[in-house]
Amino acid sequence: MMTTEESARALQLTPDGQLRHFLTLDGLDQSLLTQILDTADSFIEVGERRIKKVPLLRGRTVVNLFFESSTRTRSTFELAAKRLSADVLNLDISTSATSKGESLSDTLLNLEAMASDMFVVRHSRSGAPHFIAESVTPGVAIINAGDGRHAHPTQAMLDMLTIRQHKQRFDGLKVAIVGDILHSRVARSQIRALNTLGAEEVRVIGPSTLLPRDVESLGCRVEYDLKAGLKDIDVIIMLRLQRERMEGALLPSEREFYKVYGLNTDKLAYAKPDAIVMHPGPINRGVEIESAVADGPQSVILNQVTNGIAIRMAVMSMAMSGQLAQRAATEAEARV
């Protein structure tokens, strides 16, 4: 029986180690993550040109399959695909086929028949992109745009790009992730990326009700106290808190959460003086973070948007490259 690591590797990489799907950071090694960051650097330069477009995916069709709507994430994927010269089809499935009773696999088989080359998938179920890559459409590159509580690997990688731009390295870095870890696919991917890229320490800070069981097994330390947790920290990542957490008896109130875990100027002073503050957005001001901090000199929240497009261009072109290599290999095999 394969471990998470082995199965993620086998599914995402071609036999010679090229990326063909991008579903999770599990199973991807440091050199591959670094290659993604380096390739994204080149795309950032493309974004500064008069014509911000390269012909890599010319003639290819990318379908944005959002089973859970998110205008913001979908827009960055759409822009990334267009800047790679792909044809882009946006399908908001949350309001169409599956709600009419058509099964996920039937919907996808129809789309595959439309000669799609890549699906960008967001789904409320953990593992849905895996399922699609594995059993539905083997010839199509699948990019995970967030699945349940499992993974949001492009978001995590764009955060890594931001960290590298400001800190130039990962070794020796101490990073704190604050808030609702339990429900966060972003946090899981970030913890994984930071461990793979060689960060010295990852701390998760939040109340027990918002931490998964055995969270240390992901490669992090737990702190319940924000001030103590921020000591010696180079990078602070604040997570978004969803309103519905109050209903499930996970938290008493937004006000109490802000009092204990909200990042304000006073608490920020406990981190290193040159610590940067990140937030995957959208921000709840006065719930996770004080406006003075979100808009302050240590905040790098806006940078993250530019990086998002570059990371997505990098991952899409690399995965397409791997798929094409595999198609070529399959065709060569068929000729023999």
Binding site: Q18, T39, D41, S42, E45, V54, L324
Partner: peptide, 20 residues
């Protein structure tokens, strides 16, 4: 690297660096 006409045959150069 981003402008090569043989992307579909040899794929993306893994060592691409920004133009400057």
């Amino acid at each position: 690297s981003f402008y090569r006409d043989d992307f579909s045959r040899i794929g993306l150069n893994p060592k691409v660096r920004p133009s400057h």
